[in-house]
Amino acid sequence: HNLTITQGKLFFHYNPKLCLSEIHKMEEVSGTKGRQERNDIALKTNGDQASCENELLKFSYIRTSFDKILLRWEPYWPPDFRDLLGFMLFYKEAPYQNVTEFDGQDACGSNSWTVVDIDPPLRSNDPKSQNHPGWLMRGLKPWTQYAIFVKTLVTFSDERRTYGAKSDIIYVQTDATNPSVPLDPISVSNSSSQIILKWKPPSDPNGNITHYLVFWERQAEDSELFELDYCLKGLKLPSRTWSPPFESEDSQKHNQSEYEDSAGECCSCPKTDSQILKELEESSFRKTFEDYLHNVVFVPRKTSSGTGAEDPRPSRKRRSLGDVGNVTVAVPTVAAFPNTSSTSVPTSPEEHRPFEKVVNKESLVISGLRHFTGYRIELQACNQDTPEERCSVAAYVSARTMPEAKADDIVGPVTHEIFENNVVHLMWQEPKEPNGLIVLYEVSYRRYGDEELHLCVSRKHFALERGCRLRGLSPGNYSVRIRATSLAGNGSWTEPTYFYVTDYLDVPSNIA
C-alpha cells in the first residue's frame, strides 16, 4: 500500500525493539523526510534493546553428524571492536523451508527459537588472519532439518551509529543413524509349514526405512522333555500350542467401542483428552525405555581390526524358502538304536541362519518350516543398504507352526516275539517326523474274553527296548493296539495285532 503524509511529521519514542533503520525507511515511504526535528525521533529510546544489523554474515563451514552440527561463519568486528559482546545463534526444527525470524513471537518477546549466546573469538592483530567464530550444536535429532541463523550482539553506541551483522536463515539436516526397533511384532501360524509375521514401523526411523531383515531359527525343545518319565503317576503330560491366527481386521481397528449394538453396526467412541494424553505418555515412556535398553543392555560386537582377528559373527547367506525346513542338525536320541526319531534339535552355532529381506511392506510369510516346531524370529529395521547396512537392534518374537495331521501315527506293522515265561516283546517304529517329539506310547492289549488293559511306555523305555515287553501273560489269544502321544496330543491307534500265548508248562520236552 502507498502511504503519503502531505502535512505533519513523524514522532517515535520509547520503541526499544524498533531499529532506527526501520524508522528511516518509514520517513522515505511516507514522504516526511526532512520535516522531523532532532528530538522527534529519539536516538536513545528507539532500538536500544534490539540488534540492528546492516551487514550480512556468511557461514564459512558446515559439518553434520547424526546428532551434531558444527558451524563456522566469517569474522565480524565493528569499528570499535570492544562493542562486540558476542553472537546469538538461533535454531529450531523446520520440516519445511518457510521459516521466518519472527515465527511464534508474542507480545512478551518470546519466540519459538532456541538461542545460544556465543563469546567472540580472540581478536588477531592481523586483519587478514582473524579467527572464524563458530559453535557445535549438540543433542539434535537424527535425520531432522533445522533452520539456523546467527547475528551479532553489540553494545549501545553513544554516537548512535547503527552497526551489526546478521546471516540469512539456512537449512541444515542432520545425518541418518540406526533406527529404533520395529514396533509390535506379531507372529502367527496359518499352516503346519508357515508363519505369518506382521509389525509396525519404528517410532524413530532416523532416516528413510529402506528394508527390513527377518531372521528365523528353529528352537530346540526343553531338555526336561527328553529326561522326564511322563508315565509316572502324578506327572502331567506336557503340551505345546501353536500360535493362533490373526483376529479379523475389524476387531483390530483402534479407537473402536468394545460393545456392539445388537441391531447392527455401531460407531466408534472418540477417545477423551485424558485417554489420548495417557497414550502419549505411555508411548514416550516406551521410547525412553527402549533407548535405555539399547544403550545399557546391548553391547556392540567388536569388529575385526587390522591384526587379522576374525569377526566372530557368522556370515549372512541367503537361502531359498524351500530350504528352511531342514535348518537344524538332527541327532538321534540314543545312538545305539537307529530307529528312534531325530527330534532332539541342538543347533550348531556355526550354522548360517536363513533370512529374508523385506522391502516396502511390514509383513512376511515364512514358508518351508517344520510342522509343530518353535521358531525364534528376529526382526531388524534398516535405513541404508549400501555401502553397508545400517540397521536397528533386533526385536524378537516366537511362534510355533501348526501340527501336521497323521504325523504322530505309527507307520509300519507292530511285530512281536514270544519268549519263555510268557513274555512277549512288542516292537514298532517311532514316527519319523512327529509333531514336536514323542513323549510316550500307549499300549492297549486284551486277552479274548477279558477286559482291555493299558500300559504306558516312556520315551526312554522305548529307546532301550525298541518297544516294550509284556510279562506274566496268561495263555490265550491276544490283540494289541499302540498309539503315540506327542507334544500336540495323541496320534491314531494302530491296526490290531494278534498273537497267541501258550502255557509254557505244557511245552513238550526233548528229553527222552
Rank of each mutant, 00 (worst) to 15 (best):
L505Y: 12
Q256R: 05
I438H: 02
E495C: 04
E290L: 11
G489I: 09
S223A: 07
P312S: 14
A330D: 02
Y498N: 15
L487W: 09
S283A: 12
S274C: 15
F289E: 05
K287I: 04
E420W: 02
G322D: 11
Y396W: 09
T303C: 11
S243L: 10
T497P: 00
P475C: 08
A263N: 05
T272G: 09
G467T: 04
Y500Q: 05
I366H: 02
S398C: 10
G449S: 11
R301A: 07
E452N: 02
F372I: 02
E433F: 13
K317S: 10
R316F: 09
M427G: 08
V439C: 13
K432Q: 04
S268I: 15
I438T: 13
S479K: 05
L440E: 11
I482S: 01
H425E: 12
C468D: 00
E378L: 10
Y396A: 06
G306M: 14
R376K: 15
I438V: 09
V345L: 10
K317P: 06
S341N: 08
R447Y: 15
V359I: 11
E452T: 10
V345N: 05
S492M: 07
N206F: 11
S251V: 12
V423P: 02
R353D: 08
Q380A: 05
Y259R: 05
V296C: 15
I482T: 01
G374Q: 13
E433V: 13
V397A: 11
P332I: 10
S474E: 11
Y504L: 10
K460N: 12
A220S: 12
R318C: 04
E247W: 12
E404N: 07
Y292K: 10
G306C: 07
I276A: 04
I209G: 12
L437N: 05
E378R: 06
D311L: 08
N422L: 12
P245E: 07
S262G: 02
T373D: 03
R471I: 12
L277K: 15
P496L: 11
I209A: 08
F419C: 09
V329H: 03
A220P: 08
D408K: 01
S444Q: 06
W216E: 03
I366F: 13
Y448M: 07
H425Y: 14
K460C: 14
L228C: 15
V439I: 12
C468Q: 03
N435E: 01
D506C: 06
R471D: 03
E389F: 14
L364E: 15
Y396F: 00
H254V: 08
N383A: 06
Y230L: 14
D250K: 15
P349T: 15
D409R: 08
F337S: 09
H211D: 01
T340P: 13
E282N: 01
R218F: 02
E260T: 14
A309Y: 11
G412R: 10
E362F: 12
A336S: 13
I418Q: 04
R240E: 07
E389W: 03
R370K: 14
T303W: 07
A395I: 12
L280T: 12
S342Q: 05
T210Q: 14
F298R: 11
F337V: 07
L232N: 15
G489N: 11
L464R: 09
D506N: 15
S257A: 10
E417A: 15
D204M: 04
N339E: 09
K271E: 13
E260W: 08
N208W: 15
S262P: 12
D503K: 01
S342R: 14
R447T: 09
A394D: 03
Y292C: 01
Y441G: 00
S492C: 15
N208M: 10
P270L: 06
V501A: 04
G264N: 13
L426D: 01
L464V: 12
E417Y: 03
N490A: 06
A263D: 13
C266F: 08
E217N: 13
A407S: 07
E290Y: 03
H461T: 08
S262W: 09
T373K: 07
T497E: 09
F289V: 10
P475V: 09
Y375R: 01
T494I: 05
A463G: 10
V359L: 09
Y504P: 08
N339F: 05
S257H: 05
S268Q: 04
K460W: 07
R471W: 07
D506W: 10
S257P: 08
Y504D: 04
D409Q: 12
T328F: 15
S257T: 06
K302Y: 09
A381L: 01
D273I: 12
A407H: 13
E388G: 15
K236N: 13
Y259D: 07
E388K: 07
E247Q: 12
F499L: 14
D291E: 10
F355T: 12
G489E: 02
Y498C: 03
V324W: 05
Q252G: 11
P205V: 01
R353V: 15
R316A: 10
S315K: 03
R471A: 04
N477F: 03
L453A: 11
V443S: 00
F289H: 14
T347L: 12
E310N: 14
Y441A: 01
L487C: 05
K317E: 14
G412Q: 05
Q380I: 13
Q380V: 03
A394Q: 08
E260Y: 15
E465L: 11
Q252M: 08
Q219M: 03
E227Q: 08
E442S: 06
N326W: 06
P244A: 08
R466L: 09
F298L: 13
C456E: 01
G449P: 08
A381D: 00
A309G: 12
L455I: 10
D450S: 04
F462D: 02
R218P: 06
G467Q: 04
E430T: 11
D385E: 09
K236Q: 14
A335H: 08
D385L: 10
S363T: 09
E217T: 14
V329G: 08
E224G: 04
P403K: 11
T241S: 06
S251R: 06
F372K: 02
Y292L: 06
C266R: 10
L464M: 06
T502A: 14
N295H: 05
D291V: 08
P354F: 06
L225W: 11
T494W: 01
L237P: 11
F355Q: 10
D250Q: 15
D222K: 06
L225S: 08
A309M: 15
E495W: 05
T485E: 10
V414G: 01
R390K: 15
A335I: 14
W216R: 10
E217Q: 14
A405K: 13
H371N: 04
E351I: 03
F226E: 13
R318K: 14
G489H: 11
I482Q: 01
L321A: 09
S268W: 03
R400K: 07
Y230N: 13
H416N: 13
G234A: 09
V359A: 14
I209T: 03
D409P: 02
S398F: 05
Y445M: 14
C456L: 02
G308V: 09
S444V: 13
G264P: 11
I418M: 01
G322V: 09
I482H: 01
T303F: 14
S203T: 15
G308P: 15
P300T: 10
A309Q: 05
P403I: 13
A484P: 06
Q219T: 02
T288N: 07
G489S: 03
I511F: 07
K236W: 04
L455N: 06
I209P: 04
S203A: 12
V393M: 11
P431C: 09
A394F: 07
A394W: 14
E389T: 10
W242P: 12
A407T: 08
V324R: 15
E362S: 09
G472H: 08
L487M: 13
T340A: 05
K361R: 05
P434G: 09
R471H: 08
Y498K: 15
E290M: 06
S284T: 14
A394N: 09
H454Y: 15
E495S: 07
Q429M: 15
P300V: 10
L379I: 07
R483H: 09
T303Q: 11
R286T: 15
L232A: 09
R316Q: 15
R316M: 15
M427R: 06
M402Q: 14
H461K: 09
R240N: 13
P332S: 04
G472S: 10
N255Q: 04
Y259V: 06
S341K: 09
L487D: 11
D385W: 15
D311K: 12
R446S: 00
T303M: 10
L225N: 02
H254K: 13
T307R: 08
E495A: 10
T497G: 08
N477T: 04
L232F: 11
G374V: 11
D273E: 11
L440Y: 12
S367C: 13
T272P: 06
V345K: 13
N339L: 08
Y375E: 00
L235Q: 12
G207P: 05
Q219P: 08
I366R: 02
K317G: 06
V501E: 01
F355R: 08
Y448I: 12
S248F: 13
T241F: 14
G234H: 11
P245K: 05
D323Q: 15
P270V: 09
Q275S: 10
L464S: 12
A399Y: 09
E281W: 02
P403H: 03
L455D: 15
E465W: 15
K317F: 11
R459C: 09
V457I: 11
S392Y: 01
